[in-house]
Design a binder for these strands. Structure first.
Lengths: 121, 121
DNA sequence: ATGTAAGTACGATACTCATCGTAGTACGGA
DNA sequence: TCCGTACTACGATGAGTATCGTACTTACAT
């Protein structure tokens, strides 16, 4: 049972690893992918809570689902339903508690590597 | 031609990516493996310059070579020959320059996750 | 109830990669 | 020169995974 939010979390439950269940190797693997790195960057880029559809990713819908699942199961993001949309948020606090400095370092690195959010525009 | 060291670097040259060639995604991928993470931890554990054979890894000799190659090509370690041995060293300075805080965070995380060097003893 | 929009589950496919064994190369010592 | 040590290169193999399309489910609006 959820904490206090009952808002549109009807039947679909999403499994998240507990804080102590986060594994460095798994987190690193989840981050070692260009698409997922892009998702993480966009999430950190102020859009703290956004639906999967809001991301402009160069892959299909099912592949997008897959990447979000990998991130969630690694403990990098937390997801909850809101209507038909699945909102995603970085588990920045948990990551910081378990692997201090890791996420900030990765974020700084990914910004340095591929700065533009919309390279086409 | 090497900088100034001619010490037993006769014919065998080892390719290392330049500082600006380090890619976050590649580095993360190199670190997202238990065996390589173990190598990195041991290298950071004071053994700043050691031969591949000095590591007690649960894989074969050729697999060991492979992992060192992955780490070297990702820019995580620097290697040079010394006789028939290949000495490895962390490129901590370069990593710090390119991705500040990343390596320390990973090292702290890997120590926390698997502290013992010899879990059997 | 019906339709649409967001996302999931499933199966298929192709690619990457961690692993190994074997054969070969380079270096140092006898 | 001959041998042993340390490592490499190559090819094979099996597991993992990134990708897709299609069909299904859920929620919301009409």
């Amino acid at each position: 049972m959820p904490t206090t939010e009952r808002k549109a979390a009807s039947g679909r439950q999403l499994a998240h690893p507990p804080l102590e269940g986060l594994r460095l190797e798994t987190v690193l693997h989840a981050l070692a992918d260009p698409v997922r790195l892009r998702i993480v960057r966009e999430l950190a880029d102020g859009h703290d809570d956004m639906a999967c559809i809001a991301f402009d990713l160069p892959v299909s819908k099912s592949t997008t689902t897959h990447h979000f699942k990998v991130l969630r199961e690694a403990g990098v993001i937390r997801q909850h339903y809101e209507g038909t949309s699945r909102m995603s948020r970085l588990r920045a606090d948990d990551l910081e508690a378990r692997f201090p400095g890791l996420l900030p370092a990765v974020l700084e690195g990914v910004r340095q590597a591929c700065t533009p959010s919309t390279p086409s525009a």
